[in-house]
Amino acid sequence: MSDENLPKWVKPLLEFGPVLAFFVAYLKMKGTSYSLGGSDYDGFILVTALFVPLLLLCTAILWKLTGKISPMQIMTALLVTVFGGLTVWLNDPQFIKMKPTLIYLIFAGLLGFGLLRGQSYLRLVMQDALPMQAEGWMILTRRFTAVFFGLALLNEVIWRFFSTETWVYFKTFGLTAVLFGFFMSQAPLLAKYALEKDD
């Protein structure tokens, strides 16, 4: 089944549902300690333990329904599994908090490597959605690289120097808001370098 044949709410639900479920579950379980198998676990750890399989399940359903998942979704699922697993296994919340840092550093590193080679790797994955001249893609790629590095640094500051609750709010809403705002701010660039239909 293609994306066009799916109800419009299905894909957003599968992509963002696990994150919202994590947020709601955290609000319900924060500040509470649970004893399992002779060990005490903070609510945040148990929420992480539930989040990992939920994300994998939603990713698998999305792949089953559409026949495809993006490299970004694959990388996210892999890192969530590894860092979420370490968080639960070692009973240490810092690992799942480090995950966004690593994701954004990987994205920034890949885009930066492409720029050093005179290429826009961003264009390879987004050119169908945003038809644009090569010069525009290079500019957008440089901006995305800077934003990803900035988000990695910001995540490090938030989780290291603020409370877990602050980080959860930041992860759920802050990162999304920053990326959305960045995308909206690029409208003049997209308009300036947009390809004509004949092109």
Rank of each mutant, 00 (worst) to 15 (best):
V19A: 14
A146S: 12
L124E: 12
E135W: 00
W89H: 09
G17I: 08
Y193M: 06
W89F: 14
S70I: 02
K68S: 12
F83Y: 10
K8Y: 04
Q94T: 15
Q73V: 08
F51R: 01
G114S: 11
S185W: 11
G38P: 01
I158T: 02
Y193T: 12
Y169S: 07
T164D: 11
T166F: 14
S39Y: 04
P71R: 08
G37D: 04
I45N: 01
G174H: 02
L54C: 06
V10N: 06
F161A: 08
W9V: 13
G109A: 10
L56I: 06
D3S: 13
L151V: 14
W9C: 10
G118R: 03
Q73T: 14
L151P: 00
V147I: 12
Y41E: 09
N155H: 05
A60F: 13
F161W: 12
A129E: 15
K97T: 11
M126H: 13
G31D: 07
G181R: 07
R123Y: 02
L14I: 07
S33G: 07
P188D: 11
L79M: 10
A194G: 04
V125Y: 07
L190N: 06
S120R: 05
F22C: 11
K197C: 02
L140T: 07
F183Y: 15
G112F: 04
M1P: 08
F149V: 13
L6C: 08
Y34S: 14
T141Q: 08
V88T: 07
L102Q: 00
F183C: 03
I139A: 06
L190Y: 02
Q186T: 15
D3F: 10
